[in-house]
Design a protein around this nucleic acid. Structure first.
Lengths: 252, 252
DNA sequence: ACTGCTACCGAACGATCGGTCGGTGCAAGG
DNA sequence: CCTTGCACCGACCGATCGTTCGGTAGCAGT
């Protein structure tokens, strides 16, 4: 039991556009092209093309950011291509100009989440020093990644295994879990974790805490500083999670 | 990130029947009639009808137990009436003989979950004594209810707000959350909870831990006693959750 | 002016969706 | 034996699903 702010009440949800050039009715490409890591659908590496200036058409990645938002509001299975086209402000068939189909959008989103999460395990502080310190680092960083890549990780966490992509995602996610469970076991062997809670159970409860952040954190409400109505910076929340998980809620 | 055992690989999932009387091809009514609290679709109170002997046809509640299982495997939106009919071993149209439709099944399941959860708040130990003790009691009992009513509560936890039923469920769930949050605030005011973690955030993290149980606990694997592969009794898990949440994972 | 390409469109595809309808077999009651 | 009613069925409904197809407007390069 916990939280989540608003049920999606409105239905005519069309992303409002900021800059318009075409004469066509309101479209709304995302703001993504600047954070896109390596545009898959981009034109091959030519010289000109001035890459940073305003982009008014969709790329696979800017379309993805819209799609992921809708997926998280309605659930993947509950989202139709019609819903996506309405939210993106382009026709249903136009979506297929950018991506192969619905499942590719899911795959791209989940890949991005998994890559960010696995990158945490490759950080130096995740491999050096006492196991407890490494575990605390991974916990803190996982929280931060979850919050910075919120919509993508949220999608990953909700996967049920209905399609090939989802089965693959569940497998990769289990890999990640086991890497962290290894850390928990090692810290327990060092005598740094309480002995009366099983290591596997402890791992699950730790992840339970971390992952639940996806159910209430809303970045738009952050940095307003008044309590924890879904706001707070990711470093603050990460610190609170580490404190709560390792030191407990109770005073001594 | 955490667990969940097996992706639903098989597709020809038909509940295997134990007793057969009809000549028709394999059907499989659930084992539910004995735990049904007050059979809604049952015949009016007549005298005979010998109520306890073997029941070979579906009741709304026995059908519900099948439906909820499938809902949890494929997700509500990912489950078609065809899926349900295959799993129940009766035709699609026959389902409508017992319930009004797909959404009624969801409503019945979620009602059952919510009733069980709210009942915890009405227990004497949830209203008497120091706030911290009451909070620990509610935590322990919520874990136990979650595990005993696992499939129904799981369904509740996954609701997205797409239909009227789901919006209603989210509202009721938020009520429950706020009742518990009240307890947390009171315990914090008593000085029994650490002051450096916001009460609202603490509530969310506590629920994060509790609710995550629905993602890995599998009752069929319980009572085998070897570690925490999804087994364990609900009292054991509840105790571990209380210890971890309030005392923390770390040794002192 | 012509060509080629990108980003989009409306119309339509077969499949599947949740749900309705008119039955049918059969056990129980008279 | 005949009637009644429950539990079930196959056939079918209009709507919607994800996807495909044949365009077309507008811009860049020549």
């Amino acid at each position: 039991m916990d939280n989540f702010p608003r049920p999606p009440e409105q239905d005519a949800d069309q992303t409002v556009r900021t800059s318009s050039e075409r004469a066509a009715p309101g479209r709304a490409p995302g703001q993504a092209p600047l954070d896109a890591p390596a545009g898959v659908g981009d034109a091959p590496a030519s010289i000109g093309r001035m890459p940073t200036v305003k982009r008014d058409t969709y790329t696979p990645d800017s379309l993805l950011s819209v799609a992921v938002r809708v997926f998280n509001e309605r659930g993947y299975d509950g989202t139709s291509m019609e819903h996506l086209s309405k939210a993106a402000g382009i026709s249903k068939s136009s979506i297929y100009h950018h991506v192969r189909g619905k499942e590719e959008l899911l795959h791209r989103a989940i890949s991005r989440a998994l890559d960010s999460l696995f990158a945490v395990l490759d950080e130096p502080a995740a491999g050096e020093g006492r196991a407890l310190a490494r575990l605390e680092h991974v916990t803190r960083r996982t929280v931060e990644v979850l919050m910075s890549e919120l919509p993508y990780v949220t999608l990953l966490l909700r996967v049920r295994g209905n399609t090939d992509t989802e089965v693959w995602a569940m497998g990769r996610r289990r890999e990640f879990d086991q890497r962290v469970a290894e850390l928990v076991k090692r810290a327990a062997a060092d005598g740094d974790l309480r002995a009366d809670v099983d290591a596997r159970l402890a791992t699950r409860l730790l992840f339970g805490m971390i992952n639940s952040i996806a159910e209430w954190y809303r970045p738009d409400r952050a940095a307003s500083g008044h309590g924890t109505g879904g706001g707070d910076t990711s470093a603050e929340v990460a610190e609170a999670v580490v404190r709560t998980a390792f030191a407990g809620l109770r005073t001594h």
